[in-house]
Design a protein around this nucleic acid. Structure first.
Lengths: 400, 400
DNA sequence: GAAATTCGTATTGGACCTTTACGAAGCCGT
DNA sequence: ACGGCTTCGTAAAGGTCCAATACGAATTTC
């Protein structure tokens, strides 16, 4: 479905240019009129008009003077941070993390709260309380939030409002369950898969900056992948893109197995934290209880643990081989508990193994630098980008 | 890398609107001024001005009158087919196919020629001869071709001008080899992977019409996949996206194997035509020589052949499982010799098997309707789309 | 303290699009 | 066949927007 060229009247031009100016202010930070003229290709008077409008709408503000080597000093403009607020929420396994960020993308307050109830009512109550607390700290009300972004496990079905594939959130798979996020704040809100958000976080603040095509692969208690294509999140036809948990990776020969047993070779089963423990036990370490323990032992030179890590390397490499053959990425960032804590043991061997598995030039593989904050930072990034459009639309609506 | 908003001056508006009008004429076919006004949102006078300009540039022409139920009849406009010519070339294994299509996308002449030499000099000579023949038939010269599109196996490295991963085209992997396509016609040209073009063909003229995310999987003497995301071809970071030949699918346990042997399980090795024959032999049919033979025997109920097809189903299903887990597509079109000729035996079993392998809703799977013409039609589609922009740019350059 | 340089805005002019209005051209009934 | 109705195409007027030019304001350097 090709997006066709859009035709415009002159007044649309004004809006376009105002948007462009606002975008450049965002991108360049405190910036002078001549610089904006340069960056956008517009003339000085046009920039002045746009700034007047944006200023009157409260979206930008003067922020000082820049003294040059000679000549009159230029007034600098920047986005007015209080012009919009983003509430970003990471509904994690053990913790609910919430931050309030302003339109400039600065995180102003943050709270990490142990997960209360996981059923909708309890979780919503907890979130509402936290939202109240954070907004109060900043001196705004919940209704002043421009946009809320919720990062959840599973797949949000926008048609039915149900959350699929999220067994840890009982009750959320009922139709309409997700719509109840509207009770947390009266503002518009977005619901995104947590790993997808982590990918955006990594693309905005982490290792993925400036990389056109990359993926964030999370390995922890579960597995998942967020795909960024052309700098944009790719969700797939039904939002299930990157569900590598279901990659058939395991050692079994599916031809020999009956179909029902075929799923035992799923990537998530064999490669998640539990899978590592299971591998260690199978290899003879009966008392293994956690992936961290296995990694620590491997670092200490314990042979069985090292062998278990080898198995993990092989599984991860196979999954990444499939991803590479299909997507030909530039970079894969490894995240999640296993990915971050076991990164030092996994990255190089996985890269080696990958080179043998696919004859193509493999992607760079690196461990996430944002670690546990990736989801939250991704939610902030998504939220700020969307909020920027929202405040502009609101302004245009008010003006027009 | 976010694409930032672009700012514009008023005269850019004219260009934008002219483009939009041209695009709508393309999309809607013979169309009247009021309809164009409706479709673009522009006013009648503006449409008239745009049509005058486009007509003067030779890009559109009047084509008749449409009588309505009442009122004056409207003049109809359409793209002037002779305003641009696309030379589309499919460099296949056994045949070189070339067509000449006009800007309206109509294939005017076509020639299928047995592959002559595969080394650059011979192939280029053959292509130049064919191009001469076709253009002469239409009464134009080679220099009147707006754009040539070459579909080749392998990956075109735009930096070095070499063609990688195309063992059937010896000599083309040298730096600068691909640049010599410029000798076939003095016009601009594009070089695309054949399977990628087939995907575009299927997206434009085949089963992929209107599908946002889909892939074309080719299984024949080799294997490959073309990916269309958001209606646009996805090439990956280095143009290797969809190289599913390298998917590690085979039955061996890589942990037991030495790394050098790990590649024996590659999708291409086990699932291409030769792979099917090998499977049949391994299963006891020593005299099997071609995949077609195996399929025919399976249709006749021959047990070993049926078992070989089962093996093939399993391999294909595993590959598609990986693709599905990563990309979550709406539709997968099966093409290539095996995909088309064995489609009736493969599609349903593969879909069944796929359902067991990934717990996600699997994509629809269908056999290509364009069959052997997919690559060529894809080249036409790519060429016409690009040529449309080229002729417009040329006009704008001449006017401005 | 004057020259040089850069910034910001006022003014003018041009390009573009829309609205309104009206003549032209076709259908349909009687 | 002919008026009435409808739709099409264009002409004229008006409004919005942006660029170019010019000039005063502010700041540094010598």
């Amino acid at each position: 479905m090709p997006t066709h060229q859009t035709a415009s009247t002159t007044s649309v031009l004004r809006v376009m240019n105002e948007r462009a100016v606002f975008g450049e202010i965002f991108r360049l930070g405190p910036v002078s009129r001549p610089e904006l003229a340069q960056a956008t290709g517009l003339s000085k008077p046009t920039i002045s008009v746009a700034l007047t409008n944006l200023g009157r709408a409260g979206l930008v503000r003067e922020v000082g003077l820049r003294a040059g080597p000679a000549g009159r000093s230029a007034l600098l403009y920047e986005v007015r941070p209080e012009a919009g607020w983003v509430l970003a929420v990471d509904i994690g396994r053990a913790f609910v993390r919430v931050v309030l960020a302003n339109l400039a993308g600065t995180v102003v307050t943050r709270v990490d709260d142990p997960s209360g109830g996981r059923n909708p009512a309890d979780l919503l109550a907890q979130l509402t309380g936290l939202a109240d607390r954070l907004t109060a700290e900043v001196g705004i009300g919940r209704e002043d939030v421009t946009l809320a972004v919720f990062g959840t496990p599973g797949i949000h079905d926008k048609e039915t409002g149900a959350l699929h594939l999220a067994p840890n959130l009982p009750g959320w798979d009922l139709p309409g369950a997700v719509d109840r996020f509207s009770t947390v704040s009266p503002s518009p809100y977005l619901v995104e898969n947590d790993v997808d958000l982590a990918a955006v976080g990594e693309a905005t603040y982490g290792l993925g900056r400036g990389v056109a095509h990359f993926a964030y692969v999370s390995i922890g208690t579960g597995t998942g992948m967020g795909i960024v294509i052309d700098g944009k999140l790719y969700r797939g036809a039904r939002g299930c893109a990157g569900e590598i948990s279901y990659l058939p990776i395991g050692e079994g020969d599916p031809l020999q197995d009956d179909p029902a047993a075929a799923r035992r070779g799923m990537f998530e089963t064999v490669a998640s934290a539990d899978g590592i423990v299971a591998a260690a036990r199978r290899l003879g370490w009966a008392r293994a209880t956690s992936a961290k323990e296995v990694f620590d032992a491997a670092r200490a030179g314990e042979p069985v643990a090292r062998r278990a890590v080898e198995v993990e390397v092989n599984h991860v490499a196979h999954a990444l081989a499939a991803v590479t053959a299909v997507l030909d990425l530039e970079l894969i960032v490894l995240g999640g508990g296993v990915g971050v804590q076991g990164g030092d043991l996994l990255i190089d061997p996985v890269q080696d193994r990958l080179r043998h598995l696919v004859a193509l030039q493999p992607p760079r593989i690196q461990a996430s630098t944002l670690a546990a904050d990736a989801v939250l930072m991704g939610a902030v990034a998504v939220g700020v980008t969307a909020a920027r459009d929202l405040v502009l639309d609101r302004t245009v609506a008010a003006t027009g």
